[in-house]
Design a protein around this nucleic acid. Structure first.
Length: 278
DNA sequence: CGCAGTGTTTTTGC
DNA sequence: AGCAAAAACACTGC
């Protein structure tokens, strides 16, 4: 479940360890995970390459090489990027490995095998379908309230809209549910039915929830670990996500789970009333 | 043992 | 346009 805060934490944990490292060899164990290139191209692009920059866009982590290529990782649900000593045993479901000159390695592992690695020439991100048309970063300057409010004027429920990566980059199920709770808005509310005051509350809630998630190094509810195998701590601060049957920290009522747009959604029936004005 | 649930994105059909 | 369902998988918990 690496969403924006988790991917940002992985980036920050890896940065001091792999920036400037020289890749001396690479191994591709799950060929179908590599997109827009073949195994030979990956070898050619990474061989003797020095890592010059780490970037993040939405839920994507990008490793920039001095050979003129970008490695674009998407971890989907269970993907991990781990920095380890060269002699460490590879995890069971390893997708790819990059060996460094310093007797260390970067392991891309993924139990569910959904994670992807796109190889593109530097900056050529448009070729990656999940990056083409991606929306603004929720903590970026171009994610303004005016942009947010204008985007709400559509015939869709608010929760699926928050998860739409072309609207906002990086929100997933955890931070969408927590943002809606903080704003006191029911996930099934038609987006266009939100008043300007409610929209303002939600806009702030999205930015604050994402910022809090980053500050607490992400949420570990099952799989997520940072680049050093360390858990996040934001799970301790979740109000509703995966807390079905527990007590609402705000009003004391029982947290419920419903399905919205095919995704489980957790909410407090006291704090998030559906019939506010839809 | 079987099976529902887990979450991200893409694709397909209505 | 927007929604629903399915598919890509493996593992956990009942």
């Amino acid at each position: 479940m690496p969403e924006l805060p988790e991917v940002e934490t992985i980036k920050r944990s890896l940065e001091p360890l792999i920036l400037g490292q020289r890749i001396v060899a690479s191994e591709l164990l799950l060929a179908k995970a590599l997109k827009l290139a073949g195994p030979d191209q990956l070898s050619a692009a990474t061989s003797q390459a020095v890592i010059s920059e780490l970037l993040r866009r939405g839920k994507h982590l990008i490793i920039r090489l001095d050979t003129g290529y970008d490695l674009i990782f998407h971890l989907r649900m269970t993907g991990k990027l781990l920095f380890e000593p060269q002699e460490a045993e590879l995890p069971k479901h390893t997708t790819a490995v990059f060996y460094f000159a310093s007797q260390t390695k970067l392991v891309f592992a993924d139990t569910r095998k959904f994670g992807t690695l796109h190889l593109v020439t530097s900056g050529d991100w448009e070729r990656v379908s999940s990056l083409k048309g991606i929306g603004p970063e929720p903590l970026g300057a171009d994610f303004t309230f005016d942009y947010f409010y204008a985007g709400l004027q559509r015939r869709t429920k608010i929760k699926p809209l928050l998860l739409d990566q072309t609207f906002i980059a990086g929100l997933g199920n955890i931070y969408a549910d927590e943002s809606l709770f903080r704003a006191g808005i029911h996930p099934e509310r038609p987006a266009a039915s939100l008043s300007k005051a409610e929209a303002e509350r939600l806009y702030r809630a999205v930015r604050e929830t994402i910022a809090d998630g980053v500050e607490h190094r992400g949420t570990t509810v099952s799989d997520y670990l940072d680049g050093l195998g360390k858990k996040g701590t934001f799970q301790n601060l979740l109000a509703v996500y995966r807390r079905t049957g527990e007590v609402c920290p705000r009003c004391g009522r029982t947290i419920e789970r419903i399905v919205v747009g095919g995704r489980s959604s957790h909410l407090c029936p006291g704090c998030q009333v559906k019939s506010d004005c839809d």
